[in-house]
Design a binder for these strands. Structure first.
Lengths: 214, 214
DNA sequence: GTCTATACTGTGATAGAC
DNA sequence: GTCTATCACAGTATAGAC
């Protein structure tokens, strides 16, 4: 008998081509806008005819789905890497985290549009694609929780701060830093409102909840 | 001599048909999504063939442009009406204003998506269409200014608060009120941070600037 | 000026040959 | 697995009826 091969070279090649298609799709999306993505553009970029893409993705929305998952997976990886270098001082850490996500979003507006908004008519992310997005929320909650911020209200407020600044920055002044400064300042207001210690650097992370219901 | 007629019935009819087309366009946009607007759908709804629309609008983007102007004009009218009924008490007035705009945005997500730009590939609002949007900003600044909030930083922060909550509400929980409550609370935090009086109702509006650079 | 008919180009998607 | 051919749909340009 021949036995089962250890590696499936055919599957590997298939996966590599899928990745190549996705890379081309991102390039087109960044140039033309995420909603203006066309299969013919993508196909030409990888040296194929448009129908050939259907050997790798079942539909255009399937490509969007893979891009959606990729975007949130990148965000998740970024947050997890970031966490390892965060300060123990709450304000410093929170500011760094908030600004990191802002930069992540603003650096690629097409990607952020896909990640967040209901902008593409027929597209709804699949549960699998949505999983890393949920993981990012969980990581965010964990980060806030490590500084004693646990209530849903406080987490929601935290998220809206970056969402608002990112929306304004990408819509009104793409490429600028005006709303990054607003976000920077809002971190202080947020910490003030929740009574998070100002400058003194604690020896260890806060153990007790600080925030709470209004 | 016949002289010039007082009314131009032909122009009136033309304008009426334009308005009718726009109404149909809004209906399609709300049903299918703003980016999925199709001229054939709009035309069918007003009993025309698609090319006939070109007697009233030069292109699809021209329709978007008129819709954009209409949306911001509605917002402008709403704000001006709202101003006449606002409390003298800063917090109360600011809360009412912020929640009004939130409701305005969330009640018609397709409209808000168009107002916020960046989502429709080839579309850029014309200067004329953009004018009411600028007027809304001016009204907002005037409102904040009447309570002593004048710095650009403070105005920017004010705007991001609603933008963030609206983005989250429309994206994650359309039809709900979860992020409206977050916005409600953020008004208090904003006022606290800027030192705006809490509950005592002043006899007159504040005259001195309260906010400022960090 | 208003509207229809026709047609050109580009889109996502499918069927079938190789 | 990739191609060609084709389809139904889109936006839009143009010609011509009224």
């Amino acid at each position: 008998m021949l036995g089962e091969p250890i590696r499936d070279r055919r599957a590997e090649r298939h996966e590599a081509t899928r990745a190549e298609i996705l890379t081309a799709a991102w390039a087109v999306a960044r140039e033309q806008g995420i909603a203006a993505l066309s299969l013919r553009d993508v196909a030409r970029r990888v040296g194929m005819q448009a129908p050939s893409l259907y050997s790798y993705f079942t539909s255009k929305n399937d490509i969007y789905d893979a891009m959606f998952a990729q975007a949130w997976t990148d965000a998740l990886d970024g947050i997890r890497t970031l966490k390892q270098t965060l300060s123990d001082e709450p304000r410093e850490a929170l500011r760094t985290a908030q600004l990191w996500f802002f930069d992540f979003a603003v650096s690629d507006p097409a990607r952020y549009l896909l990640m967040g908004q209901r902008t593409i008519p027929g597209f709804e992310p699949s549960p699998q694609a949505y999983a890393p997005a949920v993981a990012v929320i969980d990581e965010t909650k964990a980060l806030l929780g490590s500084f004693g911020i646990t209530s849903d209200d406080d987490v929601d407020l935290w998220i809206t701060l970056s969402a608002g600044c990112i929306a304004q920055q990408t819509a009104n002044e793409p490429g600028g830093t005006r709303w990054r400064l607003v976000l920077d300042r809002s971190v202080d207001f947020y910490c003030d409102a929740l009574g998070i210690t100002k400058s003194q650097r604690p020896a260890t992370k806060a153990k007790k909840p600080i925030g709470g219901k209004r």
